[in-house]
Design a protein around this nucleic acid. Sequence first.
DNA 1: AACGACTACAACCGCTCTGCC
DNA 2: GGGCAGAGCGGTTGTAGTCGT
Length: 214
Amino acid sequence: MDPSTHDESVKREDKPVETMTNIPTKKEVNKGAWTPEEDRKLAQVIAIHGAKRWKIIAATAGLNRCGKSCRLRWLNYLRPNIKRGNISDQEEDLILRLHKLLGNRWSLIAGRLPGRTDNEIKNYWNSHLSKKINQKEKQSGASTREESMDGKMTAGKVDIVEVREENMSCNNTREEDSNATFNVDDFFDFSNEDPLDLEWMNNFLEMDEGFTSM
DNA sequence: AACGACTACAACCGCTCTGCC
DNA sequence: GGGCAGAGCGGTTGTAGTCGT
């Protein structure tokens, strides 16, 4: 499949806004794997201008890339303090628990795993964890009735969590829902927190255990 | 050695959200 | 309040690498 045949975003990026001469036109825009030279140029420009105004960055760096592509490359690959590969057992466990709580909100999950990107976690989930879970479900489905009851309990737990999250994440209803014991937005607000401080994790694990025992 | 199936992950796409004018 | 542009997110695709036959 050739992505260029339905490239709506590129069309949008080429609106007349572009008065800057270096911004690539639809025909010129480069796609596919990034070269080391492109990485170097992008990193240089970001070091000078900061990681904002991606369209300008793309133009300044002389890259025939759209701003979106530059942003993604920076966030997922070039950014400092990125951890690559080898997701530890602890991290995996955390991903599983957070996914149970949050669903496919990868950026929130990634926010709690220092050095990991949402894209990496999403990929890891799709290629590793989703299979693991499927296997587990199959196993539990084929085993004893007692175990299948446990499976129902697990599914029930997820439902409860999802309902809770719905209540918690909705700012409009937050005031009405005075019984909420937990606010997901507050919980995942890192603004006043050292990202490497793992105390939150203990709190989260305790809370998760609390749901488990429900 | 050659080939197809499978896996992992980088990158793209479309959509939504947010802030500014 | 409405429109626009930029930023961000999650889903999906493309492809290089690996493995089994």
